[in-house]
Design a protein around this nucleic acid. Sequence first.
DNA 1: TCTTTCTTTTGACAATTGTCAAAAAAGGAA
DNA 2: TTCCTTTTTTGACAATTGTCAAAAGAAAGA
Lengths: 188, 188
Amino acid sequence: MNALHQCISQYHPISIAAWEALSKALIKVEVPKNSFLVKEGAVCNKLYFLERGCLRGYYNNLDGKEVTYWFGFENNFITSFYSFISRKPGIENIQILEDSTLWGISFEALNQLFDQHHDLERLVRIINEQYYIRLEERLMAMQFKTARERYEQLLETSPHILQRIPLGQIASYLGISQETLSRIRSQV
Amino acid sequence: MNALHQCISQYHPISIAAWEALSKALIKVEVPKNSFLVKEGAVCNKLYFLERGCLRGYYNNLDGKEVTYWFGFENNFITSFYSFISRKPGIENIQILEDSTLWGISFEALNQLFDQHHDLERLVRIINEQYYIRLEERLMAMQFKTARERYEQLLETSPHILQRIPLGQIASYLGISQETLSRIRSQV
DNA sequence: TCTTTCTTTTGACAATTGTCAAAAAAGGAA
DNA sequence: TTCCTTTTTTGACAATTGTCAAAAGAAAGA
């Protein structure tokens, strides 16, 4: 739980009372490789902090292919965002790629904490904003860069992804075919 | 200002006190077509609500081309998000495409209001979340759909864009060349 | 170790999309 | 209207990326 506290502090320090309340509401979740944290068709009721391990979000498209659109690593906040926020079933699956340790809090518990601790809601607002900026950067790369440029950007900003994730999933994440990524990689 | 109040209510109703405080902090901005709300290299210090008109966010890429990555229409919240949040100069230009009326609030004023009115900060958190979901949808379309599919999706979800925005800017927004968009359009 | 399975690479070819240049069409101003 | 500017379309060709199939390589279990 220390990792979470440290991570939080980097975004926005919260009061001791807020941290204590949050700690009490958190539930430790240990999940083995290849299991699922969230499955499509279900409402995702929890927001997680990933302390150890890694995982991915993907959905099955109309052609029956798995489409990976994000990876989660240590110190990331994890949820099926659309489902968690809208309280509706999502199409997203969250699969554990390495044995992982997470801390989870339910939607209800989180919102109760928001009522009691203004600074906790501020923290979440600020984290949301930072994640928004990341997403914006990714959209821009997707929209205006070639496959090769996107791969090179990934190499620079997130080399750990290359070491921990199979190529096919990375290709999907970059929006290209596995064959194309393999060819790009052999030419760099 | 009524439009803003109504728009807000759809996200999260706020107290009368919060609304009054917000109203007082808002500054009306009228801008003519082709002028700029935000220019690259500057820190964007305001969050706007667009009451009337339309505008676009774009940046100049390394090849000297304008790259459009969003449009704003009536009832949208507008800012150069990265710059507004991080308090750093951005690369984004916001150009007015039709004579527009906006209501603006400064970063400082907004944050002071957050301290005084918890429900206002909640409102912004919720709006942020909804905008995040939109962005996520756009990223997925960009990542896993063909140019034609993205165009057809735009036709369905935002036909007004087609009627108010030049083709070249729409093409850029869709991440394709103007010629390709023109050809797609002639074949639908 | 030897299989078996999963992952990655390679080849051949097709489909999509981009680029450059020019023509056509549309819109604005006098 | 008429002229001028901007926007859109079209053609020819090149570059990028995808698809299918097969081979090569790596990892995991018996």
